[in-house]
Nucleic acid binder design. Structure first.
Length: 188
DNA sequence: TGTATGATCGCCT
DNA sequence: GGCGATCATACAG
């Protein structure tokens, strides 16, 4: 078992989270896709400084930053680095392992591959809501279970998805070959 | 007070 | 591949 140091940079945490299992009230699975964000680049919500919306991202690490996307969906992030520095990791896809029936009911979706393959989808499947903004990941309803020492998989990286700025940064991380990604990783 | 803009998703062609 | 849904946020005036 390994533990994750959330005081590290968002890039380091984004890579370390691949293979880790995330549960919300016992429902969840293995994280297979993440993206790193940092206040130094304009694609991040924290670029330009602290506001009421992004305040959690400037607080202590290891907390949940939950925001609404496109007026419809929730997105879940893990806050990184020291307090005062706005950095975090967007959880983009999970391989469902526990609570699949609850996920199917919440999503109105039977196909396993489409339950958690996207930041909005996984929040709906796991029941993530804005009330969880600022909560610690080492306390209920959250639970993080590190991968076993014998876990064997490769982590691939590439360009982030759905952003219009800093598209050159290879800050998307995936479990190579996973069938549960929001989009396949570009070959190369 | 008004307006433009999304770290998305699902349905349509 | 295109587009509409739907609204909090940020910023301009």
């Amino acid at each position: 078992m390994t533990t994750i140091d959330f005081d590290a940079t968002s890039i380091e945490v984004a890579r370390a989270l691949i293979g880790t299992s995330l549960f919300v009230s016992g429902v969840g699975g293995r994280i297979v896709e993440t993206e790193a964000y940092d206040e130094s680049e304009p694609a991040s919500h924290t670029f330009g400084g602290q506001t009421p919306r992004n305040a959690v991202m400037f607080g202590p690490s290891g907390r949940a930053y939950v925001y609404r996307s496109y007026g419809l969906h929730w997105c879940l992030n893990v806050v990184c680095m020291r307090a005062g520095h706005g950095a975090g990791v967007l959880i983009r896809a999970i391989e469902p392992t526990r609570g699949v029936a609850a996920m199917r009911e919440r999503r109105g979706q039977q196909e396993l591959r489409l339950l958690c393959s996207g930041p909005g989808r996984l929040c709906q499947a796991l029941g993530v809501m804005h009330a969880m903004n600022g909560l610690r990941f080492d306390r209920p309803p959250f639970r993080l279970v590190p991968q076993g020492v014998d876990a064997m998989f490769k982590v691939a990286s590439g360009a982030r998805i759905g952003i219009s700025k800093s598209q050159d940064l290879p800050w998307r991380f995936v479990l190579a070959g996973s069938a549960f990604l929001s989009k396949p990783m570009r070959a190369g």
